[in-house]
């Protein structure tokens, strides 16, 4: 049971992730953009952050950098679905900057949750 912050601007996907993780008894905090995510991160106990890489206001890579400044050991799982730079490039950059795992969309939910829980337990 852990505190997970889900940062995703698409409402449906965010809700799907929340519901699937809550089924596994995790506590979910939601944010739909990077700015909101940082605020909620500072005022809560979070073990892991799931973030999309392309969002308005503060994109995911900027968010990862900021999160690591606040809590260097925070676990981050990045997800992305494409965009101008391309899914592969963006995710490589995310990994270089310290995301613990990357999942290009569409990803298999079961595998995704396994990896999330893996990271929480290490």
């Amino acid at each position: 049971m852990a505190g997970i912050l889900v940062v995703e601007d698409n409402d449906d996907l965010r809700r799907m992730l929340k519901e699937s993780l809550e089924k596994r008894k995790h506590k979910i905090i939601e944010a739909s953009n990077g700015r909101e995510a940082l605020n909620k991160f500072k005022s809560s106990i979070t073990d892991l952050v799931i973030t999309d890489l392309l969002m308005p206001e503060q994109d995911g890579i900027g968010l990862i950098l900021e999160l690591r400044k606040i809590k260097p050991g925070i676990k981050v799982v990045a997800i992305s679905g494409g965009g101008k730079i391309g899914p592969s490039n963006y995710l490589d950059v995310a990994k270089t900057l310290g995301a613990n795992a990357v999942f290009p969309k569409p990803f298999n939910l079961i595998q995704f949750i396994e990896e999330v829980e893996n990271l929480i337990n290490t």
């Binding site: 996907l13 089924k23 997800i79 679905g81 494409g82 569409p106 939910l109």
Partner: peptide, 21 residues
């Protein structure tokens, strides 16, 4: 196309996620 692809992939993730659930 790149932008649309991103949105589509996001929706596809939701659909397949609920299927898994």
């Amino acid at each position: 196309a790149g932008g649309v692809a991103h949105d589509f992939n996001t929706i596809l993730t939701t659909i397949s996620g609920y299927s898994d659930m």
